[in-house]
């Protein structure tokens, strides 16, 4: 147990150190693309980490998490389009809009369990997708170009690649720190208790669904931040970011990295997106390799990569 913990810690420490030093490597070698690629990876890792809070710790298999990527993104895009460029307005709006969406969706879908919960969260995300597709003022199907990134005065310049990278990394690490605190707090223990045995938690005095709902809202809010970052990263937002396949990708990242582990979603996002990148360079049929490959990892490494690391070091 002790050594398992150590191997995992070493891998996580190496990954974090690698992410912190990546811009240096990129600058020294002049490989700009690697910085761009990892900016995207980090943003989606934040989205996956937020999904892990409800999926891994809360046992809520949401199949509609990409909706918040879209809501956060559209909040930034629409405000920018309407001439409000300040990040101090855009980002809070992105968070609040995501929180409200999560509150409504959560209140309705948390009445159900299991497959029904998966289907209903999927349905709501698809609804958000179709609503975005019908916003003719904001590009409808074609999406909305963001001509200027969120403006934070003289504080930070998001148009600077390196600065933007570090902003994203700070959001990811800050998000994981927040999740770590939550998971070990009173609230976090209740949520994990409900995942483990809802009937028992009710019987000892907890209003299980209310805790679930609050957790659902926190998770959606964090993912809304990822959405705001993603829109800034691509200078563009379109309904495609909320399409159900994107929600599926996020789920796979979480399962691949290891549900209910702090850094699992980060590792999962890195491996998933790097694989996607590599395979798509080799063949246009990359999805046909990627699918079975992921299936194998998920089947043979229960607990994902984090679980695998734990098993290896136990020998």
């Amino acid at each position: 147990m002790k050594s398992a913990f150590n191997l995992r810690t070493i891998v996580v420490a190496l990954v974090v150190a690698g992410l912190v030093l990546l811009p240096v490597y990129s600058a020294l070698t002049g490989k700009v693309f690697i910085l761009t690629m990892f900016t995207r990876i980090i943003i989606l890792a934040l989205a996956a980490a937020s999904l892990n809070l409800i999926m891994g710790y809360g046992g809520m298999m949401s199949f509609g998490h990409a909706a918040y990527l879209g809501i956060g993104g559209y909040a930034v895009g629409i405000l920018a389009f309407e001439g409000i460029g300040s990040g101090f307005i855009q980002w809070p709006v992105a968070l609040i809009a995501s929180a409200l969406f999560a509150l409504v969706i959560g209140a309705l879908s948390l009445r159900t369990r299991g497959v029904y919960f998966i289907m209903i969260t999927l349905a709501f995300a698809q609804m958000a997708y179709y609503i975005a597709s019908s916003l003719s003022r904001y590009g409808a199907d074609d999406g909305l170009t963001i001509y200027k990134r969120s403006n934070f005065g003289g504080l930070i310049d998001l148009s600077n690649r390196t600065q933007f990278y570090y902003v994203c990394l700070a959001c990811l690490l800050g998000g994981i720190y927040l999740i770590w605190r939550i998971v070990n707090s009173r609230f976090g223990l209740v949520v994990q208790g409900v995942r483990s045995n809802e009937q028992r938690m009710q019987a000892i005095g907890f209003h299980a669904n209310r805790y679930r709902l609050v957790c659902f809202v926190i998770s959606g809010t964090i993912c809304g931040l990822a959405g705001a970052l993603l829109a800034n990263n691509t200078d563009f937002v379109s309904p495609a970011v909320m399409y159900w396949t994107r929600s599926g990708d996020l789920m796979v990242m979480v399962i691949l990295g290891g549900m209910g582990t702090l850094f699992g979603p980060v590792i999962g996002a890195i491996v998933f997106l790097l694989l996607e990148e590599l395979l798509s360079q080799i063949t246009e049929y990359w999805a046909m390799i990627m699918g079975p490959l992921l299936l194998l990892i998920v089947l043979f490494a229960r607990g994902g990569i984090m679980g695998l690391l734990a098993r290896f070091s136990r020998g």
Partner: peptide, 21 residues
């Protein structure tokens, strides 16, 4: 401890480590 926690104030506390209470 969770059973005790359910009857010792509310549990919308998100920061402090509950296992150290």
């Amino acid at each position: 401890a969770l059973a005790a926690q359910a009857h010792a104030g509310h549990s919308y506390r998100f920061w402090g480590n509950a296992r150290k209470e």
